[in-house]
Design a protein around this nucleic acid. Sequence first.
DNA 1: ATGAAAGCGCTAACAG
DNA 2: CTGTTAGCGCTTTCAT
Lengths: 350, 350
Amino acid sequence: MNARETTSENKFMAGLKDVAREADVSIATVSRVLNLPENVHPDTRVRVQKAIKKLNYKPSRVARRLRVNNGASNLIGLLIPDIRNPFYVEVVRGVEKAASETGYAFIMSNFSQNVGKEKLYMDIMLSESVDGLIVAPASEDDKIVLQLVKSGLPLVCIDRALVNAKVDSVVVNNYLGTREALEYLISLGHERIAVILGPLEIPTYRERLKAYRETMLAHNIELDENLIKIGDSSHNSGCIFTRELLAMNRPPTAIFAGNNLISLGTLEVLHLNKVRIPEDISVLGFDDVFWAISLNPPLTAVSQPGFEIGRRAAEMLFQRIKEPKRTHAKVVLNTQLMVRKSCKAIAVNN
Amino acid sequence: MNARETTSENKFMAGLKDVAREADVSIATVSRVLNLPENVHPDTRVRVQKAIKKLNYKPSRVARRLRVNNGASNLIGLLIPDIRNPFYVEVVRGVEKAASETGYAFIMSNFSQNVGKEKLYMDIMLSESVDGLIVAPASEDDKIVLQLVKSGLPLVCIDRALVNAKVDSVVVNNYLGTREALEYLISLGHERIAVILGPLEIPTYRERLKAYRETMLAHNIELDENLIKIGDSSHNSGCIFTRELLAMNRPPTAIFAGNNLISLGTLEVLHLNKVRIPEDISVLGFDDVFWAISLNPPLTAVSQPGFEIGRRAAEMLFQRIKEPKRTHAKVVLNTQLMVRKSCKAIAVNN
DNA sequence: ATGAAAGCGCTAACAG
DNA sequence: CTGTTAGCGCTTTCAT
């Protein structure tokens, strides 16, 4: 069994050594043409490059990462709470875009809103020596993330910021987005507007609730606490609370669903009960999805720029990796109200 | 500035050496309690474990991967064609489940049906020394994947198999799924059934088309080639072809949409044109999604077990990594027709 | 401009 | 049962 070529095991990758031998230089030189090409004689350089091509050599990111300590391993981690939520898949795509443009690879983990998994995956990522992390923290004072930030690992928070910590973050203006949506509903004549939200530990929901209260107040609409439903951020939540809402003596004339999963649940129950949208009830969702327009009726929704969030977050992270002590920033992106067909003006006095 | 603790750089991770010093043993022993605990004296073991805990030591997967050549790096790669397609996010979840149960981490890349990116990401993954790969090949004779398989890298194909190669794969019975769906439609009295499919280079679509032709034939329904639309697998495809279908002299009474994105496009156009479902036209989609029930009307669809596909694929991959020369297998999973409200019997003779 | 050599953190012989 | 040691593939002084 001869040495090279025929190992038939995992050794399909030529190594630095092979290239060096092929080009008749030292491995150091090969490494140089890869990293500091200007420091090597043009002739040698082309010879080496030729060898690299010939052997189809690809540097091992692993070895590189082990050796380089400062941050040039070109790997980042992305930790998202729920991959089933289309909002986050847009985020993923945004991160991917930015990463692929920069030669970064990324590891992604989906922790399903589960703190145990969040920790597990974070450990794995550290253990993989990522250069940095993009995370949507489980809560505003997510201990695990907090600790990581303090340790100095480049990290940017998305969607949910972290209180009590100097950290880069890119979030959405939940307050304004909600306010705008509600005012649209109010302008249509709605006063009994129900709201279904996820857990208030998650800052985004708190902001949306705050906006709800304040907007109603600002328009002199009395607050009916029974119209405020707080559950988890799932489809199921949408179902349950919509049923409750429908069963009220004085049901709402409009429902503001706190995220796209909740919206779906709401729609499901509404359709099931043959209540017509928007004739019988108006529905407005936070979080747009690309197929909202395929719904019947097309859903009016607050669009969050998920893709953009991901892209910006990645860009910020790359910057911070390069320049660890730049001052931290929080970028807040605006939402956009996508008016479609699921809301309708209320007939006054009827 | 004292040595440890205060480096404030990336050195928050204690190393094997630190643990060894703390427990007053050699690094080899520490390594042993991690990997072959039975080979170390109980007393030493607990001492070491205590030290590990105290220092919050986490082994570097990177170093391990560099060292171990055979396949114990506990990292696999997952290459998917389109993360926006909910089917694939189910696959991702399935892989994640299996991986997290086994201590594997995974890198995921979304190549957006783009062969260039497919190659790029595959290179990155190799460069990361993954133990194996799960891939949905771009086509049946995807050169890149083929080459990889031949090189001996553990690899399993999902959704789309590879012809001319001995390789593990887990796919869905597209033929049967389509046939079942079509026969349901036929049993409802439909004969003018349109079908919108993605590109025929993708084997799944070829199978679905084959099933279409053969099922129609088997039921003595004449084939109208104008009812067969082949495009890409996007939402847009659904829109375009549905419009075409609607504009026909004798439009179809039912549309069979080739995937969930196409279904969405179809629905969108139908709603836009105020054609009622199922009164005016029946719609049946290949590929179920968890919110199909929230649609109006709830969509009747062929459910592909995406999660299961991912899980099985991962399990097969782990097996193959352990036992590289076991014989290859192709597991084919069945679909399930989810009858909901979007199809209706045709009024005969009217 | 180039080479020699020292590790990065870990595993796996090989000795004891 | 435990320690010593030689690398894994690469980057990076330090010489030359």
